[in-house]
Every structure is written in structure tokens, then in C-alpha cells.
Computed example of a mutant assay.
Amino acid sequence: MKVTFDDIKAAQSTIQDLILKTPCEISSSCSKLVGSDIYLKLENNQRTGSFKMRGAANKIASLSAQEKAKGVVACSAGNHAQGVALSASLSHVKSVIVMPETAPLTKVQATQNYGAEVILHGQSFDEAKEYAFQLADQKSYVFVHPYEDEKVIAGQGTIGLEIAEQVADLDTIIAPIGGGGLISGAAIALKELNPKIRVIGVQASAVDTMYQLYKTRDFKAPTHTGTIADGIAIKVPSRVMYEKFISRYVDDVVTVADGDVAEAIVFLLERAKSVAEGAGAASLAGVLTGKIKLGKRNCVLVSGGNIDLNMVSQVIQRGQIQRGRLSEMSVIVPDVPGSLSQLTKILALHKANILEVHHDRVKNSLALKETKIDFVIETTSHEHIQKIREALSQWGAKVQ
């Protein structure tokens, strides 16, 4: 495979009426936090909520009339599925998306709503992928690969052209890395325009196979692929992508823990008023953890925003706990009238908002005439929590 700067320029011309030019704005709060200018390229605002629309649109637009008449097939449980579905619909091309039977219903419905025929097959992504290959052979569909495709990579590379137009004199770009299509295309475009720019990839430490391949030229596939950044959880990384693009254009790859990604999601919600999925926020997590050597002007690519609402709730709660904005506190007090009233007075005096209260009088570790009361309270900081704990202890409660 070979992708040139001219290929990316041609892709930009091809898909300009099919995609949105997404914002690339400085984040004052993030810049102050890390001590360098941080711009956020908000590709989570793209059509279908992800950069995947770019590559899919360029690939489908490149098909011959005969290929378009036959239709396309892809395998995905997420953003690639929706990008292919909408791109195909806009070009009046039939699309078939194979998803594992375990795919979330919301993603199945979203892909169908964009016009695709969805086939549920197999219990894993690999089983679904094999079936998609079979359909491509049997029905003569064109298989749209999520990253191992020159047209797809060129389409993703249009992000690099946009960033260069929106922010001058960038020193560093930080992007999530999974299959490698996004970071490869963006790097080709940006390094053609500015050979000195550094390109940094970020992958989840739970599934860090591309990181391993980049660092050691080999990898060990994980037993489990569960991570909040599921969009970049590639169990078997592409050696083709590594050899042809990533080893040539990417300057470093770092990993981040799921907790770091959750923090980045909360940061984007609270400070940038922007919703990002795990894979989309991974690049910012790399910056916030201090693992990346930054320049004076840096761009963080927020690649997608398709996150399940239940996950958003869990992430927000976890983020509140880590920041001291939410606390679970257990106290053991005498089981007599007035104990709860005294506790709530102390919490009110310290301006803690009580969200939940639960009594436990039968726990084995409790003495007779003792009760354990569990509180979930809203607080302002870890210092605030400590002051509340001290006040409860001074009154006589055993704080756990």
C-alpha cells in the first residue's frame, strides 16, 4: 500500500460535500493545566459522530459504477459501521454491515437508520469478520476495510489538512491509535506540510498490541479485550499498517489506563462541553497524564463521540469520586433516637448535600445497639471530605 499527500488532497476534494469541517479550538483550561497551548480537533462533531465517515466516504466515492451497483460490505460493531452505512446511502449504494450477535442494540439501530442492512452473526468480532469476507466472495460485494485500504487512509488524512488550515505552526499532534488508519493519514498530510511536527499515538494499556508492535516489533495478544476505549482495542495489530506507515510517520506511542481515559471524558464534558467516547478521549488522556513531551502548540484529536449513555453515567460518577466531588461514607453510631439527626446536622453544617442514606443493623461486625449508616454525599474537594470525616469523628461516630 502507498498513500501520498496528493492522494489526501484528492480525497479532500472528493468528500468535501459529504463531511463537516469540524472545529479545532484552543482549550484554555487544558492549556493552563499542562503549560502548553492545547487545541482540540473535535471530530466527535463529525457526521455519524466519528472520523470514520471520512475514509468510508472516500472509498465508496472511488468505486466504479459496476462496483457501486453490486454494493459494499463491512464488519464493525461501532463507528466504521455507521460511517460506511451513511456514506453508502448518500451515494445510493447498497451496504451490508455484519455485526456480532453481542453488538449493542443502540449501535445496530443507528447503523440501520443510516440505511444499511445489518446482519448479526457470531459471538465475536472475528467470527463476524469472517462472515463478512464470505459475503464479499459470494455476493461480489466490495469489502470496505476499516484501515487497511489506501482510499480509507487518504480519507482519514483529510483531518490533517484541516488541522493545518485551522492552526498554524503546530509542534505536536496527538491521536488515538488502534488499527492505524487515522494516525497514518493525518501524519502523512501534516508531515508533508511541516516535516518537523511530532506525531504521537495513544492506546489503552488494557489492549496495547500496536504499542507493543511499535516498541518491540512484536506483540502478545491479550486474553481479554475489555476496555473503555473499545474503538482502539485491536487484538491483532496490522503489520502492514505498522511497516508501511506507523513505523515511518509516527514518532512515539504511549499507553493510558482506563481510569485516565475516564478522567479525560469527564474533563471534556466539564471543561469543553463536549461528549467523547473512550477511544476519542484517549489522546487527551495521554496529555493529561504527562506521558507526552509537548511542544509550544499542540493538537489533540478527539476522534469520536459515540458513547453509551449508561457508560457516560458510570464515567461521570467515577470522575466525581476521583475529584472529591462525590463521596461514599460509612459511619457506625449508637442505635438510639436522634443519631441520624445529629449526623445530618453535621453534614448540613459543612454544606454537604446528601444523595443517599442506608441503614444496616444486622452486620456481623456491629455490636448490640449499634447501627451502620452509609451516606452518598456531594462535596467540593478531597479537603472538604476530610473536614467532614474529622467533624463526624469528633462527635463520636466511627467513620469508615
Rank of each mutant, 00 (worst) to 15 (best):
A175T: 13
E277Q: 06
T209N: 12
A206R: 11
L190K: 00
V236S: 15
R217K: 14
V266L: 15
L213H: 04
V253C: 08
E165A: 15
V250C: 02
V202W: 06
G231F: 03
V250F: 05
G201H: 08
T209V: 09
I197Q: 01
L268M: 10
T209I: 05
S247N: 13
I174H: 04
P237Q: 10
G286S: 13
D260L: 03
K291N: 04
I188K: 03
I188G: 00
V240E: 15
E270D: 15
L193T: 03
I234Y: 08
V261A: 09
N194S: 10
G181D: 01
D218Q: 14
D251M: 07
G278F: 07
S283M: 07
K215W: 05
D218E: 13
A229P: 07
G160H: 06
I200Y: 07
L268F: 05
T172W: 03
D260T: 12
I246S: 00
R198K: 15
V266M: 13
G160Q: 06
V167G: 02
S205T: 14
D260V: 01
V199Q: 03
G286A: 11
G259K: 03
I153N: 04
G231H: 06
G201P: 00
A276Y: 05
V236K: 14
K291M: 09
D169M: 04
A285W: 06
T255M: 09
T158V: 10
K151D: 12
D208N: 11
G280K: 06
I177H: 02
A186C: 15
K196M: 14
